[in-house]
C-alpha cells in the first residue's frame, strides 16, 4: 500500500442509510482503514461536494428523483471507481417496488387522496427535486465499475472489497459474501 491515502466518497440516494450503518459495523477495523483511507464527501464527514480527485465512490440507494441524478453524476465525474452498494443501488430495491404503480397514483395517494391527508396538495416548491416515473438502479444512469450486493452488504463485504482494492488486487467476493438479502 502506498503512503498517499485513498480518497473515498460515499452517499445515500434512494436508500435507507442501512448500507452506511453496515459500513460502520466495521467497528475497530475502521481504525485500520482510516490509516489508508481519507473520507471525502460523505454523511460521515460534512463535505458537501466531491473533490475532483476521489478514488472510490460508494453509492447506496437507487435513483428516484432529479437530485439523485445530479449527485450520481457528480460522483461519476469525480470518482475513479464507482461502486453500487446494496440491493437498491443494484436493482432499485425496495423503493423500486413503486415501479408497478403509476407515479400519478403514488403522488395522489400520498398527498391528495390518502386517508388522513390534510391540506391535500402535491408539493410544488421549486426547491424540491421532482420524482422520476420509475426508480432506476445506478447502472441504468451512469457507468458503474463494481457492485456490492446485499441488503445491506455486511461489514465483511466492505472490508474484503476495500482491502482488495487497496492492495491492488481485483476485488472478488467469496460465496459467503455474495447475498442478495
Amino acid at each position: 500500500m502506498t503512503n498517499k491515502k485513498v480518497k473515498v466518497a460515499t452517499v445515500s440516494l434512494a436508500g435507507c442509510f442501512g448500507c452506511h450503518m453496515s459500513f460502520l459495523d466495521l467497528d475497530e477495523r475502521l481504525v485500520e482503514l482510516v490509516e489508508h483511507v481519507e473520507f471525502d464527501r460523505s454523511p460521515l464527514t460534512d463535505i458537501e461536494h466531491c473533490s475532483s480527485d476521489c478514488d472510490i465512490g460508494l453509492i447506496e440507494g437507487g435513483v428516484c428523483n432529479s437530485e439523485n441524478v445530479h449527485v450520481l453524476r457528480e460522483f461519476r465525474k469525480n470518482c475513479k471507481i464507482l461502486v453500487a452498494v446494496g440491493a437498491c443501488a443494484i436493482n432499485g430495491g425496495l423503493p423500486a417496488m413503486r415501479n408497478h404503480i403509476s407515479l400519478e397514483d403514488c403522488l395522489n395517494e400520498a398527498y391528495r387522496d390518502g386517508i388522513g391527508v390534510e391540506n391535500a396538495q402535491i408539493p410544488n416548491d421549486v426547491e424540491l427535486p421532482l420524482l422520476l416515473d420509475k426508480v432506476h438502479p445506478l447502472h441504468e444512469v451512469v457507468k458503474i465499475d463494481y457492485f456490492l450486493p446485499g441488503c445491506p452488504p455486511s461489514a465483511d463485504v466492505f472490508w474484503k472489497f476495500l482491502t482488495d482494492l487497496l492492495a491492488g488486487r481485483e476485488p472478488s467476493l467469496n460465496y459467503e459474501l455474495v447475498h442478495f438479502d
Partner: peptide, 13 residues
C-alpha cells in the same frame, strides 16, 4: 431522463 420527469412536472405544475 427528462421524459421520466414529465408526470411529476405536470402534477407539481
Amino acid at each position: 431522463l427528462d421524459k421520466s420527469l414529465e408526470t411529476a412536472r405536470r402534477l407539481a405544475n
